[in-house]
Design a protein around this nucleic acid. Structure first.
Lengths: 387, 387
DNA sequence: TTAATTAGTTCGTGTTATATTTTATATATA
DNA sequence: TATATATAAAATATAACACGAACTAATTAA
């Protein structure tokens, strides 16, 4: 029963986090400005910054002088302060990244599997690869490991259900913690996407962010005021099985007209196969290429899919009322056209057009969004607890 | 930019709120148990309780002895500590309640209007009635006034848009604050419903509550860990215009197949008129009576509506993953049958049946839920700031 | 040079949660 | 009945903390 209470030790951490947030969002900033934005006094900021210095997560970036008075001394993140391991697992395999606090990749590995690979095989290979990458940095600068999985994950790190991977009750957290000592997080892939966009991506200053992972399934992740929205059972924001067409096609979950039954990569591909009248699986690369060359079958397949995407995303915009929506996953590769069409419809069809405006953006991390976000899970605790 | 920072003055308030929460949820409790539940030390609890004593919001309710050792002295809410004014405005008029901290009504007033009444007329009559009720209690024990309105409300209290009332850009907050000095809150009706259920109703211990107001429109309110979910533009949880049937009937918002176009009281009534083949408006009382007497037309109308209710609510359960859903509004008068049918379907059709269970309950406040909740808006600040 | 201006630090103060000690009130047992 | 034991709550001492005021630092303008 986590009733929020005040503890002295938490206060310092809260201030340090607030300072970090301002530095992260507003680039190099002076102490004065940090005090202004957070509402803390100058003296409190001084102390918090000193502590963050001693942890090596902040550094001075020279001073800037504008008009009379003592120049401002700019503070910035020290990207070399620590390194994160982030991985994302999906049907095809895993992506694993070793990156710094500015999301610059030092090294990466990829694992490829066929659909028959058991959870244990996948996790074993991932742990092996992670150990190799981890050796490249000093133990002191290793801040943690995060793994994203497209499924429902209990707080302990157990994968309760990941339909696309066909995983059920896999104790991924426990296993990986044994294999790789140190902070370890297992997290839903769309939730990881939201974290990635908030910490490194295209939603740094968002107060209320909705990230959508548009792939074979559709997942959602929400960051509110810097906190991830997690449901009571550990299932974050399962938007993929929102019914948006009561008489629509059957979904693999058994219901009809689920969002991901009509608007996912799977739905797009099936439409492409139908409009082209072929029986073979049509790859996404192929559809995108044909779409860019304005071939009718590809255009029609996308337009139909887009309609449902617009419906579903407008639904979610009405439900959550976010300031920013970021699109990731394979479908986001349709790029600016997709983004603009969705942004237009969302802002047009909100309950009160005009009064609200929601920015729709594309992820800047391509297929790596979830891996970055999973790694970023270790950030908060690392910054506040070290040294 | 509300970056959370630590302030000394806030810490005390946090502890006091935590203590109040435990007392509210667990009935009469000892200090020891409060310390246990909150994780605070016994001494901290002692201090917090003393402060709450001096504010008169807590009182001792005798002691209980079980086994050896000093008996526990039970603490409970002092219902007489303060009184709240709560009102709800809808198309028919307003309900106004004066009630104590245990939601017992001291007095109430009702305002009736026809559809042509201007916002100013309604607000003027409401302010008048509120002043009368307020006179019945001492100024010291008046804790505040909350008004719920079915629409989107800016933090300032301005009603941005309330389609059913046909209000737009009405500065209700400013007006009422002038008329009635003291704490004043304007809040969405479904949000108020969630607050009412959390503080006084059937979701006292819920960590993640979804309240649904099922009336001419459908509204949603979410309480997470004791905090109301509010979107970035002040539109809480506008679930009514979630499209759940892409080819469904047109909604008054212009889109097709919105939740409230197929599952609201309006939709039910229209179905009843169709199945009975009459042109006159059929009242809800009449439908409920007919349904209870098992008349086919009424049963059919409800079953159709229920289907869409189940679809929409399952969607929301998947999206939010709450532990409790409370149903309010006129449609909730179908009672246990409705509740059971929805609970069954929601728990059956969740992403992973078995692993999650969601309690579906009915409001216990009938048409007064929103009024209680609106009034309860004043609770937190009153408890922490007085004396 | 000197005054004015702005940024950042130092230090004293009051508030706070916590740990420790003390007091209060019961049961169990010889 | 006296004594030991167990538990709850209060009192007291302590250390951490944010804050405000005074102070120092580093620049421009005159």
């Amino acid at each position: 029963m986590p009733i929020p209470v005040a503890r002295h030790s938490l206060m310092r951490e809260m201030n340090e986090m607030a300072v970090m947030t301002v530095v992260r969002q507003h680039g190099p900033v002076s102490r004065r400005r940090i005090a202004e934005v957070t509402g803390l006094t100058k003296s409190t900021v001084t102390v918090a910054v000193q502590r963050l210095f001693s942890k090596d997560v902040l550094m001075e970036l020279g001073s800037v002088t504008a008009g009379p008075g003592r120049p401002e001394r700019l503070l910035g993140l020290n990207p070399d302060a620590g390194y994160l391991l982030g991985a994302s697992i999906d049907v095809a395999g895993f992506q694993l990244l070793l990156f710094d606090l500015e999301a610059r990749v030092l090294d990466q590995k990829r694992g490829v599997f066929d659909a028959k690979a058991s959870p244990n095989e996948v996790l074993e290979a991932l742990a092996q690869a992670a150990r190799l990458l981890r050796q490249q940095i000093s133990a002191r600068k290793y801040w943690g490991f995060g793994v994203s999985i497209p499924g429902i994950i209990a707080p302990s790190g157990t994968v309760i259900h990941a339909p696309n991977l066909k995983w059920k009750e896999v104790e991924a957290g426990e296993y990986l913690r044994r294999q790789l000592p140190g902070p370890l997080y297992v997290v839903n892939d769309a939730a990881a996407g939201a974290i990635a966009e908030y910490y490194f991506g295209n939603a740094l200053t968002s107060e209320f962010l909705l990230y959508l992972s548009l792939g074979m399934g559709i997942g959602g992740g929400v960051m509110m005021g810097g906190n991830l929205l997690v449901g009571i059972h550990g299932a974050g924001t399962e938007v993929g099985h929102m019914v948006i067409d009561d008489n629509g096609p059957y979904c693999r979950c058994g219901r009809q007209g689920c969002f991901e039954a009509v608007a996912s990569l799977r739905a797009l591909t099936e439409r492409a196969m139908r409009t082209r009248d072929v029986r073979d699986w049509v790859g996404l690369d192929h559809i995108i290429e044909a779409f860019n060359q304005d071939e009718p079958w590809a255009r029609q397949a996308l337009e139909e899919t887009l309609h449902y995407l617009q419906q579903g995303i407008t639904n979610l915009a009405n439900i959550f009322d976010p300031d920013t929506i970021v699109l990731g996953g394979p479908l986001s590769r349709f790029g600016e056209y997709l983004r603009a069409q969705i942004e237009r419809r969302v802002n047009q069809d909100m309950m009160i057009a005009g009064h609200r405006s929601i920015a729709v953006r594309l992820t800047r991390f391509n297929e790596f969004t979830s891996a970055f976000g999973a790694g970023a899970m270790a950030l908060n605790t690392a910054v506040t607890t070290r040294a």
